[in-house]
Design a protein around this nucleic acid. Structure first.
Lengths: 205, 205
DNA sequence: CTGTGTGAAGGCTTTCACAGCC
DNA sequence: GGCTGTGAAAGCCTTCACACAG
């Protein structure tokens, strides 16, 4: 309801969106908070409270209309028009993600270009243009790209990050094992596979 | 101090470990909570409180001895002996991660084997043995593997997950875009790139 | 005087319980 | 009767402020 939707709620709204997709309802009927919350792995009051940020979208006694709910979610999240994304760093992980391109495409994202200090490393099974770093500024500013996926080595991450910010990038999905120092207003999500694994290992008996 | 370290704290302890690594101190000297917290992107009191879970490891007026701290962290997290990991699903993302193997190795993890319904897809630049799914039970139980990375399509994720749990897997790093239904006592960390991107797009002005 | 360790305060999220609408 | 929407309560985590050790 209130303007500033809590970070964690935004996260879960995306999640609910994916869960609805997964349900594969062909426009059919409604879901109850009970059912949907179970799929999403949260408690039902939480789901209801989260969805309340999208306005009164549920019907009491019935549940949530699937189609309507998805529309509202997309609207609230601003997912109707998905932003262009560039990827920087085509090493192991970077080119891996480029090969996974179709996975992103299915979810509505498209990597418009990739950049690397040594673009000739580009392998033949990658369909995205791989350009030298020197072209990054021009490309990003001309096309008004606002999001980037960062896959450079940790040692280069901060300086490449700075370069991105100078050219108007506002959100970064960071795979480099470094916490980026950024000014307020820039969104950074970190994905650190080593930490994920280490974290899991803690819970093994 | 108390036995049950909060989940989020465990997470950050791993993070601090990585930050120390990044500092690259060759056994030299100490770090203050002020400095280390800045690198890790948290506030200094938080860092101190987190580190207090490792016992009295800091020296007042001096800071934290880097070597000692790393030892204590490894001890607390149980990272001294790192567990074996298997990867399931060698599609786009799965084989991408296998190619990234050396990235894991640098952080101390090793994928001991990969499994797929069609293992012949194995490409030549992957050094990890790729075995058919039918061998999974035997491999996992015989070697006592407790951790798995799950990269199968969403439609297969839950059933493969069940198979893993039946064979004694206790922790799963899940890349499938599905929330896995698991009994308590099993740890699951989800990595969903589409959600990360969607989430970031929300914060673009 | 510097910098850790920590009780107490504060803020944010989750959970509960139930009123209200279909 | 069923299920949403939501104030109130509880819980958890973060932040603060300061005592205290080196």
């Amino acid at each position: 309801m209130k303007d500033p939707i809590p970070r964690k709620t935004v996260y879960r709204l995306s999640l609910y969106n994916r869960c609805l997709e997964q349900l594969g309802f062909a426009g059919s009927g409604t879901v109850s908070s009970e059912v949907l919350s179970k799929i999403a792995g949260v408690k039902s009051p939480q789901l209801r409270k989260d969805l309340a940020y999208c306005g009164h979208v549920g019907k009491r006694g019935l549940g949530y209309d699937v189609v309507l709910l998805r529309e509202r979610l997309a609207e609230t999240l601003g997912t109707s028009r998905l932003p262009a994304v560039v990827l920087v760093g085509t090493g192991n992980l970077g080119s891996a993600l480029l090969r996974y391109q179709e996975g992103f495409a299915k979810e509505g994202f498209e990597i418009t270009a990739a950049f690397d200090a040594r673009p000739e490393k580009r392998s033949s099974d990658i369909s995205v243009p791989v350009l030298p770093m020197t072209e990054l500024s021009k490309f990003v500013t001309e096309r008004g790209v606002k999001m980037a996926i960062l896959c450079v080595p940790g040692t280069a991450a901060q300086s490449v990050c700075n370069l991105l910010l100078e050219n108007g990038i506002q959100a970064i999905l960071n795979f480099a094992p470094v916490i980026l120092q950024t000014p307020p207003g820039v969104a950074v999500n970190n994905v650190n596979l080593a930490i994920e694994l280490e974290n899991l290992s803690y819970f093994i008996k």
